[in-house]
């Protein structure tokens, strides 16, 4: 695995942070279009702070789903953050006030950058830097999106969705050099793709993680 200098971790954190934060515009716009006020839209980003869960919440509300369906969809997608938290806790062990702060910042992006680093110092820096960058950017962009609504057009025009995919690929890349990493990654990819048509958005990622965990346990016991 490549050992990155702190500057390298910073670049990763900022790149992932910016790519994700720009998506916040669409969340703000969709939330307002779904019937939330600008304040409510901003509170989902300040308090809930998990893109998939937020999109699920406003998506279900916007399509006429009940409060309970919206909360359930949002919460099911949030389970994976608990799984991420286990890993982050093992690597950075936050204490005192840092623990709830770390919990709030535990999302796909901060975890992805953190676990891609090769030592605990890098994992700590990657987690906090990415989490804070995404938090600030995501909230500012949610406000912006909520205020200007759909008039900005589609962020896909700028390839921002592909930027996120490219970022995740760059993060998994060093793990593909080892046979065991390649096997687990291929397994995760296959599980995810086969479950996307079957499960609500976000859950295939949880399933891939769970299968990866089981496969990891089997690899160790062999």
């Amino acid at each position: 695995m490549v050992t990155l200098e702190p500057a390298g971790v910073r670049r990763q954190a900022l790149s992932v942070g910016l790519a994700t934060a720009l998506y916040g515009i669409s969340l703000g716009a969709v939330a307002v279009a779904s019937g939330l006020s600008v304040l409510q839209a901003c509170l989902t980003s300040l308090l809930l702070f998990s893109g998939g869960s937020q999109f699920a919440l406003v998506g279900v509300l916007g399509s006429g789903g009940s409060v309970w369906a919206a909360v359930a969809a949002s919460s099911l997608l949030g389970i994976r953050n608990g799984l991420y938290a286990l890993q982050i806790n093992a690597a950075i062990r936050p204490q005192g006030w840092r623990r709830p702060a770390a919990a709030q910042l535990t999302i796909d992006e901060s975890t992805a950058v953190s676990v891609a680093q090769s030592d605990d110092a890098g994992r700590r820096l990657g987690f906090w830097l990415t989490g804070l960058t995404v938090y600030v950017g995501w909230n500012l962009m949610t406000l912006l999106g909520a205020l200007i609504g759909r008039s900005i057009g589609d962020p896909r025009t700028y390839g921002l969705d592909a930027a996120a995919a490219a970022a995740f690929l760059a993060l998994v890349w060093p793990r593909l050099r080892h046979r065991s990493g390649l096997q687990i990654a291929a397994l995760g990819a296959v599980v995810d793709l086969s479950l996307v048509p079957v499960l609500p958005a976000g859950l295939p990622i949880v399933a891939a993680g769970a299968v990866g965990l089981v496969a990891g346990l089997r690899q160790v016991s062999r």
Binding site: V115, V172, I184, I205, L213, Q219
Partner: peptide
């Protein structure tokens, strides 16, 4: 090894 599955 779990992150490889999650990231993929």
């Amino acid at each position: 090894v779990l992150p490889a599955a999650l990231l993929a």
